[in-house]
């Protein structure tokens, strides 16, 4: 059971990402967090395992307050939370199997890591998970040879190798095409249900959230503005979360703003070049 109370996060740049978020996840359910870009979705998820240090507030997982742990205790706590990333974040130059086994790093010592000798039960589990996510026979393939969907499958399997009590999922489908997105969502939700693991899932695709989540939390400007069943997402609620728009088709897609756009070359640069030449 995860309880987040009055969580605040202010970045050194002064940007307020979270403005007092409180929520409880007490059932083995998939909780989708939706909201516009910059609403604090990613920060919220990263505060749970302290990849981002919260400014104030508490995150309690099964009785332990994560925010108060020392580095060492935090590592032990992180073992209990599996995380899945938007950009997969695999170790590109290692094989699929090594990537899966890296999910066990919290449980094995450095020497075993160094020799790549993991316990037999870990390896059996890894083969099982490879089967489950549909990557049978890929164990010796290097991660950089995989497609996006395949990489995300490896990412999911790595997170589940931890046998987590909680899954943190950060925009798992934002870099994938619609069909692969649905496949990936089906795998995540299926695995969470099979294992009774609650999952906290950031997503900006409202339709995907509606069709796969048990519960939806709407975030706007670092605050919870909606918390309820997916069928409670009506025009009024969506307007509250995202702002004014024609929601009649409820096909709303969060827009990825200015990603990968190059700044134009400044004229001053060319002048200084010429001046010296």
């Amino acid at each position: 059971m995860l309880t987040i109370t009055d969580l605040f996060k202010r970045y050194p740049t002064g940007q307020r990402a979270l403005n007092g978020v409180s929520l409880t996840v007490d059932l083995p359910q998939v909780v989708a967090i939706i909201g516009p870009s910059g609403a604090g979705k990613s920060t919220l998820i990263r505060c749970v395992n302290r990849l981002v240090e919260p400014t104030s507030g508490s995150v309690v997982l099964d009785g332990t307050d994560i925010t108060k742990l020392s580095r060492r205790e935090l590592r032990r706590a992180r073992r209990r939370m599996g995380m899945i990333f938007q950009e997969y974040n695999l170790v590109e130059r290692l094989t699929v199997m090594e990537n899966l086994l890296s999910g066990r790093l919290g449980y094995v010592g450095f020497w075993r890591t160094y020799r790549r000798r993991y316990p037999p039960e870990d390896i059996r589990m890894a083969y099982g998970l490879l089967d489950r996510v549909g990557l049978t026979g890929y164990e010796n393939t290097r991660a950089d040879a995989l497609s996006g969907g395949e990489r995300q499958r490896v990412g999911i399997a790595r997170a589940l190798m931890q046998q987590p009590e909680l899954l943190l999922v950060d925009e798992p489908t934002a870099s994938l095409d619609p069909k692969t997105s649905r496949q990936i969502m089906r795998i995540i939700v299926g695995l969470a249900q099979e294992r009774g693991t609650p999952a906290l899932l950031n997503i900006h695709d409202v339709v995907l959230a509606q069709s796969f989540a048990d519960r939806v939390i709407g975030l706007r400007a670092g605050k919870v503005v909606f918390d309820g069943a997916p069928n409670g997402l009506d025009e009024k609620v969506l307007t509250e979360i995202y702002g004014e728009e024609d929601w009649s088709t409820t096909v709303a897609r969060g827009e990825d703003e200015d990603e990968g756009r190059k700044p134009p070359r400044r004229r001053g640069d060319m002048e200084s070049e010429a001046a010296v030449g």
Binding site: M83, L90, V91, R93, R104, G106, F110, T113, R158
Partner: peptide, 25 residues
């Protein structure tokens, strides 16, 4: 950075992060 973050998120020790997350890159 993402890869390093992912390895940290598994609860790996500092040395393990260097060995698995950084070194292969």
């Amino acid at each position: 950075v993402g890869t390093v973050e992912a390895i940290e998120a598994t609860g790996a020790s500092r040395l393990q992060v260097l060995w698995i997350g950084v070194l292969p890159q």
